[in-house]
Amino acid sequence: MFEDFLEDIAQKNGLRQVNTYLKLAAGTGAILLGLLSTSYIAPLFIAALLTFAILFLARVDAKTYARLFIHPIWFASVSVAGIVLIYGGSTVFWSWDPLPWFSLSITRESINQGFFVFSRIVGGMSAVCFIALTTPMTDLFIVMRQCRIPDAVIDLAMIIYRTIFIIVDQVQQIYNAQVMRLGYSTFRESIYSFASLCGAVFIASWTAGEDLIKAMEARCYDGKFALLGETRPVERIPLFAVMAFLSLSSLVIICSGNMTII
């Protein structure tokens, strides 16, 4: 399953041993810089650098990375198309008034704005992918505790994280059992199979929850959850690399100013 897939990549990626704070600084810094930029160049520059880092430093498979981008890009394309058509502007290339009170137009400003939004989405997505593919949740829990997020929230997050994989596994097994018995061969059958899948998974989650309580009680649960508090040291090369990346991106933002595509 895809959830398993992402977490597995994060656990085995080439930047696994780099300090978590450095990776988060690079990822969140990239998102903030993308939002601060007023030109399409900086977000694309950030996306290019982070993509390089993901593919060649974290050694994530290019196909996997591309697959991660497909859905957001589709979503972004639809949104950008809407922006381009309704944003308006003074230099009109094409316009159409289907209703007296509603008009569609493609203008220089709308194209610039659409491309700018699109580049921001690409930049932001690559930053989110960078964090997701290089920083496993298990490392993020440590950061969350160090950031003094309430223990109850972290404990709950950890239990949910652990349970997701058990439930996903259950879903997969039930789904396979249904497919093997032609459960999805017709539309009607699919509806019925999906409904019974949901019911079975609900019961399985309920049982898993009860077992979880038993397992915790059997080990004297007293409201405490351990965390491996060690974070990896900040090493010089990754630190300089992150600083260089953020500085360079800031420089690109300043230099590119309000540059537009047309």
Partner: peptide, 25 residues
């Protein structure tokens, strides 16, 4: 327990093994 998936409750091996001792204070 018979099914380890039902017994392992924490997201990492360390956290799971440390669960009992931590709760024992």
């Amino acid at each position: 327990l018979q099914n380890p998936d039902r017994q392992i409750i924490a997201p990492t091996v360390y956290q799971d093994v440390a669960f009992g001792p931590t709760n024992l204070g």
